Computed example of a mutant assay.
Amino acid sequence: MHNKINYVEFPARDMDATKAFFAAVFGWGFTDYGEDYAAINEAGLDGGFYRADHCASVANGSVLVVIYSENLEDSLERVKKHGGEIIKDIFAFPGGRRFHFSEPSGNEFAIWSDA
Rank of each mutant, 00 (worst) to 15 (best):
W112R: 08
Y50F: 15
D14A: 09
Y50L: 14
N6F: 06
H54S: 01
D53T: 00
H2E: 14
P11H: 03
S75D: 13
D114K: 05
D32R: 13
A39R: 14
E77T: 08
A52D: 06
S57P: 04
E77I: 06
P11R: 01
G83M: 02
A12N: 15
A92N: 13
E108H: 01
I111V: 15
K80Y: 02
A110N: 01
F30T: 13
S75K: 04
Y50H: 14
A56L: 01
C55M: 04
G61H: 03
G34T: 14
T18F: 10
C55T: 05
F93M: 12
H54P: 01
N6Y: 09
D89Y: 01
H54G: 01
D14V: 05
G61P: 03
E70N: 14
A17M: 02
N6L: 06
H100F: 03
A17T: 04
N3Q: 08
G27S: 13
G61Q: 04
A110E: 01
N71M: 08
G106L: 00
E9S: 09
W112Q: 10
E9G: 08
D53V: 00
A12W: 12
A23R: 12
D74F: 06
F30M: 12
K4C: 03
K80A: 03
G34W: 10
I87K: 00
W112D: 12
E42R: 15
V25F: 09
S105L: 01
V66A: 11
A38S: 15
H100W: 02
R51W: 10
G34H: 12
F10S: 01
F99M: 04
A110P: 02
E73V: 04
G47T: 11
E108L: 00
Y50C: 13
N6R: 06
L76N: 04
R97E: 13
V79P: 02
W28V: 14
P94C: 06
E42N: 15
G84T: 10
S105D: 06
H54E: 02
V66Y: 07
D16F: 07
M1K: 00
F49K: 10
A110W: 00
A12Y: 10
E108I: 01
F49N: 12
E73S: 11
S105A: 08
D14F: 07
L64T: 13
G48N: 12
F10C: 00
G95Q: 07
H82C: 11
Y33P: 10
G106F: 00
R97L: 05
G27Q: 12
I86A: 03
S57I: 00
K19T: 15
L64W: 10
A115S: 11
F30E: 11
H100M: 02
E35M: 09
K19L: 15
S62D: 00
K19G: 12
V66E: 13
D46W: 12
G84R: 04
S57H: 00
A92W: 05
G84M: 08
F101G: 03
V25N: 11
P94K: 05
D36S: 14
S105I: 01
R97D: 09
A38I: 13
Y68D: 11
